[in-house]
């Protein structure tokens, strides 16, 4: 049976995400999917869900949610002081909820994005093989006050959970972002390469599910390239020297030199960064 969650407050930017759309890039459709795939997968693992089950991605400020059916939930990723009926609950644990319970969040302690998983996963329209919300593809792209979220209530009570597993949290405060060289890295001068790989950069205010811009520019004389493929993790260098890291909702093609590419772990680390946070790239391959 479909059970409901009432959205009393939506939080700053919350959306249902799974592991994204695969195979529709040729139509210009972004991949989307959870920004920090590690936390989302751990959330599902704790609940004994398969890893691709839809979770609620919560950004900086948490929503206030009322459950109308019993279930088990788990929260991973950023620590936003979760509370159940005003009583503190903890990240990375399985939490039992009952009809009428209200989940809320407090102050953000560290990280940027938290993931709320529920036994059996959230139920949201599957469009182009994925439930990930994206403007223009799914019926909505962010949670609004008064919305309803759905989950499967069938016999979740005695489900086996994996509450014993240890979830890593150190990467939430990590400054080092592992990267590979990108297709146009070879065009950079020795000076640019040194600057790129030894400087500390800070996250710009312009950062969302589509891209994260860095504040410090790189001296640049490279011209745009013929429009080519890009992916989440691609680091673009604009003519004015801005570094733009493409994230999960990015377009499928772009015309700026692609100088680095974040590893999957690098994307997860960057997903947990706030404006002004420092980062440093670390090259994985020689």
């Amino acid at each position: 049976m479909k059970a409901k969650i009432k959205v009393l407050q939506p939080g700053l930017y919350s959306s249902i995400q799974d592991l994204g759309r695969f195979g529709f890039g040729k139509f210009g459709v972004p991949q989307s999917g959870v920004m920090d795939s590690y936390s989302a997968k751990m959330c599902n693992l704790l609940l004994n869900n398969s890893e691709e089950k839809p979770v609620l991605e919560i950004t900086q400020m948490g929503p206030k949610l009322e459950f109308n059916e019993s279930s088990k939930i788990a929260i991973c990723g950023a620590l936003i002081n979760p509370k159940l009926n005003e009583k503190a609950v903890f990240n990375n644990q399985v939490i039992q909820v009952k009809n009428g319970d209200v989940l809320s969040f407090g102050k953000l302690e560290f990280g940027c994005r938290a993931y709320l998983g529920i036994s059996g996963g959230f139920i949201s329209d599957i469009i182009l093989n994925s439930s990930s919300w994206y403007e223009g593809i799914t019926h909505q792209f962010r949670l609004l006050k008064g919305d309803e979220l759905f989950f499967n209530s069938s016999s979740t009570f005695d489900n086996i959970t994996n509450s014993g597993i240890k979830v890593k949290t150190d990467y939430l405060k990590e400054q080092i972002v592992p990267v590979y060289i990108g297709p146009e890295f070879y065009l950079l001068s020795k000076f640019q390469r040194t600057d790129l790989l030894s400087s500390i950069f800070s996250i710009d205010k312009k950062n969302n599910r589509m891209a994260v811009q860095l504040q410090e520019p790189l001296l640049n004389e490279l011209r745009p390239i013929i429009t080519g493929p890009v992916l989440p993790g691609t680091v673009q260098l604009t003519p004015s020297g801005n570094l733009i890291v493409l994230m999960r909702d990015c377009q499928t093609t772009g015309g700026y030199p692609r100088i680095l590419h974040l590893s999957e772990e690098g994307i997860n680390v960057l997903s947990q960064k706030l404006a002004d946070d420092p980062i440093k790239f670390s090259l994985l391959n020689p």
Partner: peptide, 25 residues
Amino acid sequence: MSRQYPHFTTMGEKAILMEFEPEIS
């Protein structure tokens, strides 16, 4: 810098990029 085409590079852990002469034709 001159390159041989097609040129192969990786883009992260899940993608291989194959590039040809940089021209629109």
